[in-house]
């Protein structure tokens, strides 16, 4: 009897070890992918950076890969990504945060049932469909420009901003709101003066994730941004982002041009890294 029990126990332990190793393997795969991407980016872009020169690459204002001699300056694209992302934040964040306040604090249940799935649906729309929408609606009005891309990206980051901000607002203890009411504040005053500041770090996190989404977006931006590789003189002029630069030319590129595009990817990777680190920093600060 005890022998049988022992066998069962052993089988159970074997199974446990087996299951645990599968989980560990899964975890290792994602880390491995990140590591491989880092190695690939670094290994492929360093030769180009050495040949072009890091400063010339980062601060060069002319991108003419087909000329002889070619010039590879990504400053217009770096600025392009920053402008478009900033535009998306200016347009998307106020709308997103106010929507979150509405959803969390003053939305009747019936309307909530309508808006919430709508917002979730917005997150599921493929970016190329956003691009078509932009081409049909925004291009005739603003042309291929920073403002077109900003409006489109502003809409695209809404689900991220709304979802996380709403969660942050709901996480604020009800006593904050009630305390404000007890001190004589009205509903809106209590919401904006007590609840919203308490949810500040959560909302910042939402904004940072929104920025991450905006800066990495490619397909929709290519379709509405005009893609000119030069520093734009106004927000009604077109612009090329880091991501568009890679996608536009990768198919054709060979040799140094190809490596320069991979180096463009490295710049983008560094940007995303900074965004993620600041997100982590914000999260750990709000915990402590």
């Amino acid at each position: 009897m005890s022998k049988k029990l022992e066998l069962i126990m052993r089988a159970k332990i074997d199974g446990e070890i087996f299951a645990r190793s599968i989980f560990a393997l899964s975890a290792v795969i994602s880390i491995l992918a990140v590591a491989l991407i880092c190695v690939f980016l670094a290994a492929n872009s360093f030769p180009a950076l050495r040949e072009i020169g890091v400063l010339k690459f980062l601060f060069g204002t002319s991108w003419k890969p087909s000329d002889i001699p070619p010039s590879y300056g990504v400053l217009p694209m770096i600025l392009g990504s920053l402008y478009v992302t900033a535009g998306a934040v200016i347009i998307g964040v106020p709308i997103g945060v106010l929507t979150a306040v509405f959803l969390a604090k003053c939305c009747p249940k019936k309307i909530y049932k309508l808006i919430k799935p709508g917002v979730d649906l917005l997150a599921g729309i493929p970016s190329v469909v956003y691009g078509f929408f932009g081409m049909a609606i925004l291009l005739p009005v603003f042309g291929g420009s920073i403002i077109s891309a900003s409006i489109l990206l502003g809409i695209m980051i809404l689900p991220t901003v709304i979802g996380l901000s709403e969660a942050a607002l709901r996480a604020v203890p009800e006593s904050y709101y009630e305390g404000a009411l007890a001190l004589g504040a009205g509903h809106y005053r209590a919401t904006f003066a007590a609840v919203l500041p308490a949810a500040k770090s959560g909302i910042f996190a939402a904004v940072i994730l929104g920025i991450g989404r905006a800066i990495g977006e490619t397909m929709a931006v290519i379709m509405v941004a005009g893609n000119q590789a030069r520093i734009p003189s106004s927000i009604f002029k077109g612009v090329r982002t880091l991501t568009s630069n890679i996608v536009l030319e990768m198919g054709y590129a060979e040799g140094l041009h190809r490596q320069a595009l991979i180096a463009t990817g490295l710049v983008l990777f560094v940007f995303i890294l900074i965004i993620n680190l600041s997100f982590q920093a914000l999260k750990s600060r709000s915990k402590s």
Binding site: K64, S66, D67, I68, G238, R240, L248
Partner: peptide, 16 residues
Amino acid sequence: DGTVTDNTTLEATVAN
């Protein structure tokens, strides 16, 4: 001297 310069205006929209 073997140089090649594409003088397409930088304001041109680039379509892929």
